[in-house]
């Protein structure tokens, strides 16, 4: 991946992220967050995580942001008009963020693992075709021999083979979440109990 493209995407992600934190109008914040998530999805694609990148766009930039915008417009939330912000939370927020970012940068620069890049750890697709073990399905080995990364197929195999139980637990969580939302948003009949 060209370094310029990486810096452009990182700038998109972080710049729109900054706009989310500083924006006064909630609609601006939500749209900036959608743009930030799109940049992040492009970063996922640059990491050869195609499936995750697409899911990021579909779920975050699509579903979640539409839900946010829907709620903002449903509740008709206006921009914080003229209310002066108290200084303490703002200063402490900036301070904590700067400290955390500095800490992460220090840790990253002091470990050797951080210098791994696409040149010294290349994907060995045709080699991997022979070492798949249980995942050696015809469709996956065929893709690998042709030199394409069957990303979604491999994630699907991992999910259903190694994390089948976890997948069912997550399904249950989504069901509980759906029921919970319906219960929470139901208007109580006959006023307060």
């Amino acid at each position: 991946m060209p370094p310029l493209l990486f810096y452009l995407l990182a700038l998109t992600t972080l710049g729109f992220g900054l706009l989310v934190v500083t924006g006064r109008n909630p609609v601006t914040c939500a749209l900036s967050l959608a743009a930030s998530f799109t940049g992040l999805a492009a970063l996922f694609l640059s990491l050869d995580a195609y499936f995750i990148g697409i899911i990021q766009i579909l779920v975050y930039a699509g579903a979640v942001m539409v839900l946010f915008l829907f709620i903002i417009m449903l509740l008709d939330i206006k921009a914080e008009e003229g209310k002066q912000r108290s200084l303490v939370p703002v200063v402490s927020g900036i301070l904590v963020a700067v400290l955390l970012a500095a800490q992460v940068s220090a840790v990253v620069s002091s470990t050797g693992i951080a210098s791994k890049n696409a040149q010294n750890t290349p994907l060995a697709l045709s080699d991997a075709a022979g070492k798949l073990g249980k995942a050696a399905l015809p469709t996956i080995t065929k893709d690998l021999k042709e030199g394409t990364l069957p990303d979604a197929k491999l994630i699907g195999f991992t999910l259903f083979d190694r994390y089948g139980f976890h997948l069912q637990v997550v399904g249950l969580l989504l069901l509980v979440g759906t029921v919970g939302v319906v219960v929470l948003s139901k208007r109580e009949k006959g006023g307060a109990p």
């Binding site: 990182a10 992220g17 693992i113």
Partner: peptide, 30 residues
């Protein structure tokens, strides 16, 4: 050459931005 460190720093900065927003903002939605 873009290395793992670059991605980790971007990730850390995005996390720090989010943390600053959680601490500093008053609007629950934001």
């Amino acid at each position: 050459m873009i290395s793992l460190g670059h991605y980790l720093v971007v990730s850390g900065m995005l996390f720090a931005l989010g943390l600053a927003g959680v601490i500093a903002r008053r609007n629950i939605l934001i």
